[in-house]
Design a protein around this nucleic acid. Structure first.
Lengths: 162, 162
DNA sequence: ACGCTGGCTTAGTCAATAGCTAGTCAGCTA
DNA sequence: TAGCTGACTAGCTATTGACTAAGCCAGCGT
């Protein structure tokens, strides 16, 4: 147990009660990727699904729900919807993650890490590995100077302060 | 834009359609930390709030909602509720993050990173910094061999495989 | 004992979400 | 042209989530 896992307020942000977190980036992210079903859809996209019927089958969501999530994710720029056609078959649609969509993966990976350790009794059924070296992959906090940072070693600063 | 941000299936998990992600750790995590309001409460706990009235004020949630979230998070082991008393005042209650609760921070940090970059027009108002060296902090994927890993360099393996 | 206050709880209301069912429409082939 | 199928859409229902307003109870000091 960390002695104190809280983030220290620094500069203009101290004390905490002097400002309102109304423009919080994490909350803004949760408005874009909205609720369990959006996470589920993104998970399957990361696991390689591209077409509507694959997503229906793998997410086990209803078609209306899936269509709504795909629409939102596309409208918000995390996905692009492309037509493709194999010879002799109809034109169909596939979905691809954009860079914006791909950048969401550390969130999902961090959730997987946390869930493996704390929400599953036997550590989870699947593991992320680095394809090149085979080592297990986790989400962790690091600073631009290359240190691994524990949540207790953090401070929150206003973005306009150095 | 990554050429292919999908996670590669390996070993028994390939092809994707051979198994169901019914015991997904990320989804299990989202059942424990359930919805926007739980994230909001955890954010303020990370930002140092301890008492009920602080949390009501800073989260701007209704009391019934906050009480319900605190109850769930406590029942699920992310928080402990302690009595404390200052001389001359009544006994009051405060909430502290457990290790389980503190371990959720990389999820929140990853959401902040993503939100800073993609959900806010001017990069977000607050920044996480490493208290010791002052450098900016981000959530990133790293493997146990010390490499920084992009989402396209990942494979998913069954946990019982090496 | 009374009054105050902090931390909830209760009951009702409204909004949001997801599912189901049926349907539509486009893009092909026979 | 008809038929098939893939990708949604529309409308309805049930459930869940969050809020408001009022209330309760415990823990103090006067």
């Amino acid at each position: 147990m960390d002695a104190n896992p809280a983030v220290t307020m620094s500069g203009r942000l101290d004390p905490r009660d002097n400002w309102e977190a109304s423009a919080c980036s994490a909350m803004a992210a949760l408005e874009v990727v909205h609720g369990r079903t959006a996470f589920l859809v993104l998970r399957e996209l990361f696991y390689g699904a591209e077409r509507f019927e694959q997503l229906v089958r793998r997410t086990r969501l209803s078609e209306p729900t899936l269509a709504a999530r795909l629409r939102e994710l596309t409208d918000n720029g995390l996905l692009v919807r492309e037509d493709y056609r194999e010879p002799g078959q109809r034109t169909r649609q596939q979905y691809r993650l954009t860079e914006k969509g791909a950048d969401f993966f550390p969130v999902l990976a961090a959730l997987m890490s946390w869930g493996d350790r704390w929400a599953q009794e036997d550590g989870g059924f699947v593991k992320l590995r680095h394809r090149d070296c085979g080592a297990a992959v986790h989400a962790e906090l690091r600073c631009d100077a290359g240190h691994t940072v524990a949540s207790g070693d953090l401070e929150l600063a206003a973005a306009t302060e150095r």
